[in-house]
């Protein structure tokens, strides 16, 4: 059950009138692809397990139901039930995509909108298929930051790696699709492989981070060994475990 990451950004372009403002808002939604028929208890159990692993990424996330692989999910009451059960898990389903005409009518009846815009991120491809992919993708452009990243700032590298050549303060956030390299002191939060790339790593010169995460698996400063603090380290995934090791 592939799930995309939900990071949120705003692009504000006020179109004003006297009584209200209209603003454009860009955000990333989570797409949920049920497979087969109407989601059953096993489906929700698997979903709960996934949510438990990465609670902070999905809290109140906007959700789009992708109906491509669930042709049987075509009745309004079934869709309503899915929406309700998702809401109980703090996931807010608001739309459907890849719906067949009958499904679309049922979805609209259930108060879901049809989403046709937007791009899906690579995670839509199931992991087994990814391994078999023949050609390596062209190198993706990353982002290089040379000034200190301050508390309250979020730096996002949508594609590729994020390289920071300055300190990252407590309360700052780094998010990258690929690896994160911090050559100054890392005191804030770093989230590598934000779109699910489990091979992503975090490297930092001096570790004092509040949180390290790779592909949604995270560790907070409480759970890091004291011996690693202030050291040069790397963080990477080994199966379902986030490992943090001293460098060199």
């Amino acid at each position: 059950m592939p799930i995309q990451d939900a990071d949120e950004r705003e692009a504000q372009a006020p179109a004003t009138s006297t009584s209200f403002q209209l603003r454009g808002k860009l955000f990333t939604a989570v797409t949920l692809l049920p497979e087969g028929g109407v989601p059953d208890a096993a489906f929700y159990a698997a979903l709960d397990e996934q949510l438990q692993k990465t609670p902070q990424f999905f809290n109140n996330a906007p959700v789009i139901l992708d109906l491509q692989s669930a042709p049987a999910l075509a009745r309004t009451e079934d869709l309503r039930r899915v929406v309700d059960l998702l809401r109980e898990r703090k996931l807010s389903a608001f739309g459907v995509q890849n719906a067949r005409p009958a499904q679309l009518a049922a979805a609209q009846e259930a108060g879901l909108i049809s989403v046709t815009t937007g791009n899906d991120t690579p995670l839509r491809v199931p992991r087994s298929e990814k391994k078999g992919a023949a050609k390596p993708p062209p190198p993706k452009p990353g982002k290089i930051i040379t000034t200190p990243v301050r508390s309250g700032q979020t730096i996002i590298a949508d594609q590729g790696d994020l390289v920071v050549l300055a300190p990252v303060s407590s309360g700052a956030e780094l998010v990258a699709a690929g690896n994160i390299h911090v050559y100054g002191r890392l005191r804030g939060r770093a989230m590598a492989g934000a779109y699910g790339d489990t091979r992503a790593r975090i490297f930092c010169g001096k570790l004092e981070a509040e949180l390290l995460a790779v592909a949604g698996l995270y560790r907070t400063s409480d759970s890091l060994e004291d011996a690693l603090l202030g050291q040069g380290v790397q963080a990477f995934l080994d199966g379902n475990k986030l490992c943090v090791e001293a460098l060199g």
Binding site: T147, P148, V149, R150, S151, G152, Q153, S169, S170, G171, A172
Partner: peptide, 13 residues
């Protein structure tokens, strides 16, 4: 110190 850091970020943005 943390608030000052936040303000330094705003000064730059």
């Amino acid at each position: 110190v943390r608030d000052s850091d936040r303000v330094l970020g705003l000064l730059n943005s």
